[in-house]
Write a protein that binds this DNA or RNA. Sequence first.
DNA 1: CCTGGGTTCGAACGGCGTTCGTGAATGCGA
DNA 2: TCGCATTCACGAACGCCGTTCGAACCCAGG
Lengths: 267, 267
Amino acid sequence: MFVSSTLFDMPDPTNPPERERTWQAGPVRVRVTLPKARRGDRPEPKERLTTERIVDTAMALMAEKGYDAVSMRSLAKALDTGPASLYQHVANRDELDQLVIDRIARRLEIPEPDPDRWDEQLKDVLRQMRDLFRDHPGSARAAMAQIPTMEGTMRAAEGIMAICVAGGISPQAAAWMCDLASLYVSAVGYEEALWAQRQNSTPAGEEPDHEAIDAEMVALWNQLPPELFPLLTRYSPELTAGDGHDRFEFAADVLVAGLAAVSEKYR
Amino acid sequence: MFVSSTLFDMPDPTNPPERERTWQAGPVRVRVTLPKARRGDRPEPKERLTTERIVDTAMALMAEKGYDAVSMRSLAKALDTGPASLYQHVANRDELDQLVIDRIARRLEIPEPDPDRWDEQLKDVLRQMRDLFRDHPGSARAAMAQIPTMEGTMRAAEGIMAICVAGGISPQAAAWMCDLASLYVSAVGYEEALWAQRQNSTPAGEEPDHEAIDAEMVALWNQLPPELFPLLTRYSPELTAGDGHDRFEFAADVLVAGLAAVSEKYR
DNA sequence: CCTGGGTTCGAACGGCGTTCGTGAATGCGA
DNA sequence: TCGCATTCACGAACGCCGTTCGAACCCAGG
């Protein structure tokens, strides 16, 4: 009824150039089944499930409808199967999250360390991380919901370490900075995801709309009782000033300047 | 069968001295029913449900068994009632989280700002916040799962603002620091809670055991493939050095020094 | 052609947050 | 003191969730 299927190895399609080494997983086995044309009504032979396909679909679903829309059940439905099927390829929900954020973190581009521009480079990496979380809505939630232990996550640490050490930061300070930086960036991403989810429960895949979020925050601050919070009231322009971007730039500045300042203390 | 009950107003038992103003909630109405002695077998008249009692129980449950052990159902069972009853006093799970972390944040003690010691004072507040999260396991999880908008949370901001401004930090930098600082501290608390939960699923209310957590982290770093992560391997002593406390002190140093460094830039 | 190991997946388990509707308790005006 | 309107308590149910069980199925090696 169907031509016989072929089985062959194929490089990881995620990040083609990065093929030198397979630390995490073996080569991906993809099974392609060519259906005899025009046999349309007969239920097509389902494409084989693979961890790849599962992670792909999870990311697509998360990008489209947010983290909470990705459950083992909804994911299975998107793959046109039952929830139990997923467990053959993914240990549990936790591991799925790990795989997703690992795949995302792999996109991080670590610049060639330049001692003269280490501070700008470090900020760039932070911005990149923030952007990755933004480009994959929901991923920050997944990142916070787990302890970072996989390859993609480690690349970020390796990169930060490289830049800092090149910049003359003491190894101890640089090492702890990896922690601090990635924790901060994921927290920002997580918080943004929360706001985005709350304010609208974004129905039709519209992007998070950071402006509306900021506006809502301003409104909240402005109705504080002045007797209880004199300073918050007095400085409410400053407290509500700037959007997420401005605040992030400020934080990046603080982190980098602070690192430079305390580096020697932790030599 | 029972003597008639009396009804009277009572000050909020949470924080007796702070009575000057009731912004959030009205006076608490407590109804005390004295059962006729020795009528023991008859089911005692259940104490009335109040938001207070619910929050108290939620905090106790969280402290004993962690955030995940607190569900509307388990909470109801602990209060010897059904889940539906809670909704008479608490809008939903989100609001419960808000109430809990608000109650906790209220314990924060803001020092009288001293311009000469603003940096130490700021670090103290950060430490205090961290300790509050630690003293109430699971609360950091609740804090991250919501957008901070309530009284207790605002007190932290007010305090940080006061210290910074007294220390000569520009209002704009101080304002954004409130954001940055509380985001960082809750992220730390959240991560600690995750580790604690993962490694053992702490059965019998034993405290989180930060040492074991740190040990597990060291083990993880030490099995990285050196070819892929040369720097992480080379500097693994630094990367795994120090416990949660050391890292927190480092972060506090970075934040405070960084704030001082960039303050003028954001005037 | 058989057989056995891996894959698929419907069904079910126990838990979740939340809502509905009933019935009891309560406080108030008469 | 007595109705009565209102508030409160709460069992039951709805529709989710992550995960497991076990039967059916596919297919490579004998």
